[in-house]
Computed example of a mutant assay.
Amino acid sequence: MHVYSAYWIGDCVLTNKDEELLLEILYDPIGCNNGNVIQAIPSLYKVNKSAGEKYIRYYLENCKINEGGPLFGLLFDRFQDDSNLHQLLMENSVRFAINNEIESCLLKVFRTSPEEDIFAYFIRRFEYKNNVVNESDYLYYECVPISAHMLLVNKFDVQKSKRLFDIALQWNLNLEENWRIESIARYLIAYLKPSLEITEDIKSIYLQIYSSCKGNFLHVRRLVESISEFHNKTKELICLVSSILEDARSRFANDGGKLKELILRAREAITTSGGKQGTPGKPFPFDIRLKALIEEVLPNYEEHSLTYRILQDSLHYVNRAISRETLFEKDDW
């Protein structure tokens, strides 16, 4: 198996005899670990693409969920412009978590794929997660990476990333009411957002979607909830929340429960940080920045407006957080 490792084969010429030996070993890899098998698969694909593709499909159906990434990484390293491999990736990588290797391969395919095809791929991952989430073997399977630093579309063309996010937001509005499904969907929205903060262009996307769904409370609630995924708080984010909330105030004025829920979601959109980082015993830098931002924009809103009320509540919230950390510093450091 070592003889046929993709690391050694390089530009060597392989013959039919090599193909026979590879097929015999790969389908009955006694004494070989999967690492050696993975390294030999590109050699089979090189000598016979049809036989190689057939075996790749067989391997991907039977390997462990952490073994798909290394294979795709090695294949794309050797044959990155091969359209058959692109199709294999789109059809057979759903059951594997998106690690760095698979993400790198996906980006090579996505750069020439329509936004609709890209999102359809993620819908398949989303549906797979919903189907296997209760199976112990897939306890740690995630349809998209959930680490704060993971952001797919910042490696895309800017316009393409915005169109993809637009599709994702509109899809999110029509999901069934189910806390587990909504939770998984939030990770997908976060992964596909075009940037870490609300910009004027992203604000325009939100307002266009809001104009088409503003009479539907569930849609409006989900739209406001999704703003929470932007953890870098800006004036544009507060302006967006204000625009939606002040309009929704008149639409849901006769239903105090719905309006109260929107107010709660709006405050969360302003104050949600994801994971905070800072120095033990000191106020979190996120809280310091948010306090300064709210104090800067608060005078721009009329005192009787919902936005002013929410900003005041948010300011009280962040001041309590800062005081709590300051007291902790005095008592324990």
Rank of each mutant, 00 (worst) to 15 (best):
W171T: 06
N172G: 05
N174A: 00
N174T: 01
N174H: 02
E176A: 04
E176Q: 09
E177T: 05
E177S: 10
N178K: 02
N178I: 02
N178C: 11
W179I: 04
W179N: 01
R180K: 14
R180Y: 10
I181A: 04
E182Q: 12
E182I: 09
S183D: 10
S183E: 10
S183V: 01
I184S: 07
I184T: 06
A185P: 01
A185E: 03
A185G: 04
A185R: 01
R186A: 12
R186M: 15
Y187P: 00
Y187D: 12
Y187I: 03
Y187H: 13
L188S: 03
A190Q: 11
A190E: 09
Y191K: 06
L192P: 07
L192N: 08
K193N: 13
K193I: 10
P194S: 00
P194F: 01
S195G: 15
S195I: 07
S195T: 15
L196K: 10
E197W: 08
E197I: 13
I198N: 06
I198Y: 14
I198C: 06
I198M: 15
I198Q: 13
I198E: 10
T199L: 05
T199N: 06
E200P: 00
E200R: 06
D201Y: 14
D201A: 15
I202A: 14
K203C: 09
K203I: 12
S204D: 15
S204Y: 11
S204A: 15
I205M: 08
I205N: 11
Y206D: 12
L207H: 03
L207E: 09
L207S: 09
Q208N: 11
Q208P: 03
Q208R: 15
I209Q: 04
I209S: 05
I209V: 14
Y210P: 07
Y210M: 06
Y210A: 10
